[in-house]
Design a protein around this nucleic acid. Sequence first.
DNA 1: AGCGCACATGAGAGGACTCTCATGGCCGTG
DNA 2: CACGGCCATGAGAGTCCTCTCATGTGCGCT
Lengths: 219, 219
Amino acid sequence: MNRILIAEDERRIASFIEKGLKAHGFTPTVVDDGAAALGHALSGDFDLVVLDIGLPRMDGFTVLRRLREAKGAIPVIILTARGSVSDTVAGLEGGADDYMPKPFRFDELMARIRLRLRTERSPEMTMLQQGTLTLDLRTRRASVEGRTVDLSAREFALAEVFLRNPGQVLSRGQLLSHVWGYDFDPESNVVDVYVRYLRKKLGQARIETVRGMGYRLAT
Amino acid sequence: MNRILIAEDERRIASFIEKGLKAHGFTPTVVDDGAAALGHALSGDFDLVVLDIGLPRMDGFTVLRRLREAKGAIPVIILTARGSVSDTVAGLEGGADDYMPKPFRFDELMARIRLRLRTERSPEMTMLQQGTLTLDLRTRRASVEGRTVDLSAREFALAEVFLRNPGQVLSRGQLLSHVWGYDFDPESNVVDVYVRYLRKKLGQARIETVRGMGYRLAT
DNA sequence: AGCGCACATGAGAGGACTCTCATGGCCGTG
DNA sequence: CACGGCCATGAGAGTCCTCTCATGTGCGCT
């Protein structure tokens, strides 16, 4: 449905984004150098570009500049290194629509992409619902059977992944990369612990264990 | 420039919003009952409505429904009581564009209003700059003279008010209501303390004291 | 110059949050 | 039924954040 171009040369990050997008029903294409990125972006086959700044052959800034010179109006989200504010500012002034500082959680990128693809006057998606469970994406609060529950930032991010994939089994690895980012210790049992926190707040039965696989939101 | 309708019967809150909007260059109009709200909203004289749900004569839901029935496409932001998730959901499904749970900080409302008034394809304002000081509205980070500095949520909100009003003297009261909300103890010296924190992180001279008046961002 | 008020500052209480670690329990298989 | 692995759980360390309070300092006015 929505075709997204990923211009990123670090394999690990490119694959991280690619997998995430596929899981959300997008059909991403990955290229790993600037020249290819520009060509694809101008082809008209894509609806949005995720553009790394540090690309070989032609850096992201140049790609962006040429793209805009050629009147390509496609939305561009740039990926910048943490702390390089000047790059970020330059990118936005150079015509980028948004940016993500590395390292990032996949879900943050997803939110940015949604924002840019969203059609006019569609009320911004601010509430997620599944049965009697509601998540308010802005106030970081949930409500279950009418009760209002405060969630911490982490708890909320985790709950959001479940709500966006109701009934689907999510592995610890998936949850870890969605909620904790691609840089987190894969040995940790944080996911278990936070699932417990959520169960305590949302109700034990709300999240089911699928032995050997992961967890799943009850539907 | 942008005409905003405030439909709110609690005087204190209406005035809180009104003052804030005026300070930001808007020209708000206040009405305190639902019938008047509907009339004004349909008049075509306004660009956005801030609509309280609990209005006398005709409640917010009804106003909203009638407005949409009459094909009024004006953006509507509803104000809901804290914890009333069902009201919020109903409001959004009833055609509201966004919502604010009470009590809220003025700046949060402002951000919502900006979002709704923003014109197509204008890159979302995500960075504020003043000289060598930059605020990244998304990552909650600042950068001064190239250095990157992490700010806490409160520090950041305070810094944002200064950055949005460079050179202007801001009273403790203004800062309190912007950053802490209209419900906060006006006797507290939190503002002083947080100004200190900011000075420590951003540089002493960056925020000037105007004796008897308040504080000001150095330009 | 001296006074009074406004502002600056240090210290710390209290709480929330995130994550680790160790242990205990249970499921499913052989 | 016994075992091994997977999962659940409790406890707690370390950190950060927010705000209050008491006291120090200095500005500006008379």
